[in-house]
Structures are given as C-alpha cells and as structure tokens.
Amino acid sequence: MDIHSIDLNLLVLFDTLMKARSVNKTAEAIGLSQSATSGALARLRETFGDPLFVRTASQMEPTPRALQLAPVVRKVVQTIQSEILQSPHFDPMQAQRSFVILTPDIGEVAFLPGVLPRLRREAPGVRLHALSRSRTAAADALEKGEADLAVGFFPDLQKAGYFQQGLFTSTYECITCAGNGTVGARMTLKQYLAARHVVVRPDGREHLLERFLDGKGWQRNVTLELSHFMSLLALLPGTDLIATVPQDIATVVGRHIPLREIALPFRPPQLQVQQFWHRRMQNDPANRWLRGLFYEVNRRDAGARLSA
C-alpha cells in the first residue's frame, strides 16, 4: 500500500466508528451527512481491502483486521490532535533554551540590564547570547534563524520580510572629561570641528552622525578612532578629547567617570531605536514572548532618557 493513497480523514472516520459502532453516530460526530459517511467508509474498505466493520443486529462490529488496526490508528489520530493540531505554546518559567540577540555594544549596556531581572523572575532557564553584527550580516542571521531578534539602529532591516517595532527615539550628545579646561559649555561650529575628537566606529557599522556630517561637508579633527564605545571609560579621563555619542552611551559612561556635556553647534540627527524579527518568527510563541519582554522593558515615551 502506497502511503500517498491514505486519506487521513478516513483514519479519523475509522477511529470514530471504532468507538461509536454506528454510521449515524459517526456521521454526527465528524460533521458529515450519513451518505457522505457511508461513501467514506466504502473508500476506507477499498483502501485496506477488508470490510473492517460489519453490520449486526445491534451495531457495526469490527473485523479482525479492524481490531488489529484500531490501536495504531488511535495513536496516529491522538498524535495529530495533540502534537500537530495543538496550538503552539511557550512557557517561559519552564523553558530551557537560549536566544540570540543582535545588538551593538551600546545595546548591551542599555537594553540588557533591565531584561536580566525579568528573566531571573519569569524565565530562570532562559539564556541570552548578545552578538554585534553589521547591518547586512544582521539581516542574513535573522533570515537563516541564527538570531532571534535585532535590537537597536538597523535601518537596513526596514524592508520586506522583516517586522519592526519602535522602542524610542534618541539623539546625540557631545561629552568630554569633567576636568577638560580647553573647551567651554558651548562651541561654535568652527571650534567644534577643530577640537580633538575621539570617534567610535564599531566594525562593519556605518553611523548616522557620520553620514549627517559628511552630507554637510563638515570634517572633524579626529585624533583617535575606536571600535567600542566602552573604551571611552579609560580614554576620556585626563584628556582634552571630546566625543559625540548616542545619548544612551553618554548616560552609561557618565555612571562611571565624571563627564561634562558640551552643547552642539547644530541640531543632531534623530536615532530611531527599534527591534526587528524575520517574518518566519512572527507567529512563533517563544519569539513573541521575547520581543514582548524587550518592548516592555525598553520602550520609552517621547523625550525620556535612560536612567542615569
């Protein structure tokens, strides 16, 4: 017998008839007319080459072949009902799994601290793996299922095939060591461009501020280039360097070293911070829970900042 010739609906009919022992009751249970049920029973008999059920004075009695098939068919039907047709479910309290989050180092220090206490309370067996990827590599990782969520500034993911959800809007600040006496609280554009800048350019990631300045034709005096924002903790103190960084970085760095903010001589661009996921994961219960958690913890109202 070729498996392609088996109609799974006939197995449901067989299982129901095995319990009901009546064509009428079977028809009512599976929502078919009596004639349609009788026709299905005929196809079932033809498929297995056996009468399967024989009418007696009181009910339909199974043949030996039907009795042999009954437990196997019951198992198949139960498996389909419980494991295939059952709505998917994710229980964070019982889950033992890892999620991969794509975010730059700014995201690791801004987004994860608020998430960890929630995981400890609500999903103690869940582990997070934070990775930094270039924009093109982020799209590839989400598409292939190598990452579950991208959180941060990923304008290249604003395209077909990806869902997005806004978390907050931020901007840039200019900071320097609190003891830097070479610059004041305000600078002209000429003074800003001539100052000694430390610029952070994480590998493979283009920055909105860079494009903004290039578009204006403004060239800064870049003394030092870094790949990681957190290196500012060691490199700003005791120097005359200034750094123009996202607000969250200014807040986090200011938690550890004394800083002074310098008013920018121009209005900086706005950063749209969002979370992204591939459309394959749109209805996945685990991914839905994960992005819901990140949204609840990291969403901010307009103008709100990361807590200092």
Rank of each mutant, 00 (worst) to 15 (best):
L306C: 06
L131G: 05
D156G: 04
L226A: 00
A185L: 14
R127G: 01
Q86A: 15
T171C: 10
L157Q: 02
G217P: 01
E108Y: 08
Q78K: 12
L11S: 06
A147H: 10
A27C: 02
G107Q: 10
T56K: 07
H256Y: 15
L157K: 03
Q164A: 12
A20E: 09
L149A: 10
E296K: 12
D7P: 09
Q191S: 04
A29T: 14
L271M: 10
D140F: 12
N283D: 15
S22L: 05
N9W: 01
I249C: 12
I257R: 15
G181R: 03
S87H: 03
Q81N: 13
L213S: 03
V183C: 09
S134Y: 07
R305L: 14
P113H: 04
A178C: 05
D15R: 02
Q96W: 09
L271Q: 10
R255E: 14
V297N: 11
Q272G: 06
G254V: 08
R220P: 01
L13V: 13
F294Y: 14
S132G: 09
E225Q: 05
V12W: 11
G166M: 07
I80D: 01
M93Q: 15
L290G: 09
P113K: 07
Q59C: 04
R120Y: 03
A185S: 13
P71M: 12
T47G: 06
Q274V: 10
S134W: 12
A66E: 06
S38E: 06
P71E: 15
A302G: 08
T251A: 15
R133D: 08
I257W: 15
E28A: 06
S38W: 06
A308F: 08
A40D: 03
I84A: 13
T188Y: 04
P113N: 03
H207F: 03
L241T: 03
L193G: 01
D2F: 11
Y172V: 02
R305S: 12
A139N: 07
G254D: 09
M93D: 03
V151Q: 02
I101N: 10
L264P: 01
G303D: 10
G181W: 04
R45Y: 12
G204E: 01
F111H: 08
L32E: 04
A130R: 05
V199S: 07
Q34F: 13
L232V: 09
G114N: 02
R127T: 04
T63Y: 05
Q191V: 01
G238N: 14
V183N: 10
D301A: 15
I30H: 03
G49N: 05
F229P: 04
H256V: 05
T182S: 15
P268W: 07
A42Q: 14
D7I: 05
T169H: 15
E83I: 06
S22E: 00
L131A: 13
H89G: 02
A195T: 00
R121T: 06
T223Q: 07
C174H: 03
L232W: 08
Q81D: 11
W277V: 11
A195L: 01
P92W: 00
S35N: 08
